[in-house]
Write a protein that binds this DNA or RNA. Structure first.
Lengths: 217, 217
DNA sequence: TAGATTGTTAATCGATTAACAATC
DNA sequence: TAGATTGTTAATCGATTAACAATC
C-alpha cells in the first residue's frame, strides 16, 4: 500500500517542513511553490513534482497551498505526526547536548533518558541545573527498555572502544535505529535485518564543506 | 582543470576512506573492490566506476589496490591531505564536545579555538581538565580571524536568536563554510556567493532513521 | 595455465527539469 | 477577463548497474 519514498524526497520534504516551521505563517494563509522555492532553494517544479508523487494535491490555482493543511500533509510523510521517543547512550557533553537539542522538539523527537557507566553522572530525577533528561546507569538499560518497548531508536555517544559492543547489545534489546556519534564506523552483524545505522553525521557534513570550499579555491 | 565531483561521489569516497582507516591494514597489502564492497556496502562495480571517474587507476589485476597508495589517492580527492583549521562559535556542551570530536582528527580537521559571550567560559590557555581548545571571548573573534586568515570554516552552536546575526558577521570576516547546529535554519543573504552552509546535520539524520523505521512497521 | 580482478564501455534505471493545459 | 499557479506529462539529464575484454 505505502509506496517507497526515496531518501532524497524525504530530505526535500524535511526542507519544506522546516521552511514552514521557520516562516511562522498564519494557519489559514497560503504559500505557493514559488515562495517555497525562495526559502528552500528547491525549484518550484521539483516541489510540485514531489507533491504529485506523494499524492499531496491540496493546492489551489492562483493561491498555492494552505499552510496548515500542507503542514499536516508533510508531517504525515515524515512520520513526525506522532511523538518518537529515543534514548541516548553516553551522558557526556555530546550526550547531554543532544538531550537538549531543540530541533528534536519541533520534530516530536523526545529524549526520554540517558545511560552511562560513570556513577558520578547518574542522576535519577534531580535536574543538575539543565534541561537534561534523567541519567541512569547502563545496568538499568535492560529493564528500562523492557518497560518501554516502544523505544526503537538510540543515539550513541560512546568512546570508540565500547561502541560496537553497545550496538550489538542494543539490537538484542530490540533497538532498530542507531545514530552513532562515536568516532568509529559501526556495522550491524550480517544476520541482522531491518536495522538502520547512521554513522557520524557530523563529520560527513564537514567532508562536504571542506570539499566545496577548498575545491573552488 | 579540476572536474566537478558530485557530492554523492564524495560521500562514497568518504566511506572508502573510513573503511581503510578502520581496517588498519598494512600499508603494503592490497584490497580488492570486492573486499571494499563488503565493508562499505557499495557495490564493487560502483567502486571501480568511481575510481575510473576519479582517475584512480592504481589497481593490479588479481590483487586489487595497494592500501597505502589508495589511501593517499582518496585523501587527495577528499582534500584532507592538508590540515584544515576551523573555529567553533559557542562554547557550551555541544561546542566543547565538537572540539574534542575524534573523527575530526583522522580527517585532519582541527578546532583551533572556541568563542563565546559568557565570561565564565573564557579560558585563554588553561585546560579546565579537558582536551578542549582554548576559549576566547567573542569580542576577540575579529582580531583572531585577522591573525588567522586561512580559517574559512566555522561551526555554530549558538541559541537560535543569535545564530543568524553571527552568520552575517562571520561572512564579513571571510568565513566561507558554516556547519550550523543552532535549532534554526540559516541562510546566506542573497548577494553573497560561495558560501556553504550545512544546517542541522544531526536532525537530518534522525529524519531518515525515523522514516525508515516507522515506515516499515 | 586458469582464475581473479581490473579498467572501461554500454545499457538501464531513476531523478530532475521543462512545458503546458486546466482553471481559480 | 487576464494573470497566476496548480497538477501532470514528456523530455532530459545524470547516476548506477551490468558486462566483458584485457591481463596479471
Amino acid at each position: 500500500m505505502k509506496k517507497k519514498i526515496s531518501l532524497r524526497v524525504i530530505k526535500r520534504v524535511s526542507f519544506y517542513y522546516e521552511a514552514l516551521l521557520k516562516l511562522c505563517l498564519p494557519d489559514d494563509s497560503y504559500i505557493s511553490s514559488m515562495k517555497l522555492e525562495e526559502v528552500t532553494g528547491v525549484s518550484s517544479n521539483q516541489i510540485r513534482q514531489d507533491f504529485f508523487y506523494l499524492g499531496i494535491s491540496i493546492g489551489k490555482q492562483k493561491k498555492g497551498y494552505q499552510v496548515k493543511r500542507l503542514f499536516n500533509e508533510l508531517k504525515k510523510v515524515l512520520l513526525v505526526d506522532k511523538k518518537v521517543d529515543v534514548i541516548v547512550i553516553g551522558a557526556g557533553r555530546l550526550g547531554c547536548a543532544l538531550s537538549e537539542y531543540k530541533l528534536f522538539k519541533v520534530r516530536n523527537i523526545n529524549v526520554v533518558a540517558l545511560f552511562d557507566v560513570k556513577e558520578e553522572l547518574i542522576s535519577k530525577s534531580e535536574d543538575k541545573g539543565s534541561h537534561c533528561a534523567p541519567i541512569y546507569h547502563i545496568d538499568e538499560l535492560d529493564g528500562f527498555l523492557s518497560e518501554h518497548p516502544a523505544i526503537k531508536i538510540a543515539l550513541l555517544t560512546l568512546p570508540e572502544n565500547s561502541a560496537q559492543a553497545m550496538l550489538d547489545k542494543l539490537m538484542k534489546l530490540g533497538i532498530r535505529g542507531i545514530v552513532n556519534f562515536a568516532p568509529k564506523i559501526l556495522k550491524a552483524p550480517e544476520h541482522v535485518k531491518n536495522i538502520q545505522i547512521v554513522n557520524d553525521c557530523i563529520g560527513a557534513s564537514l567532508y562536504k564543506i571542506v570539499y566545496q570550499i577548498y575545491n573552488k579555491a
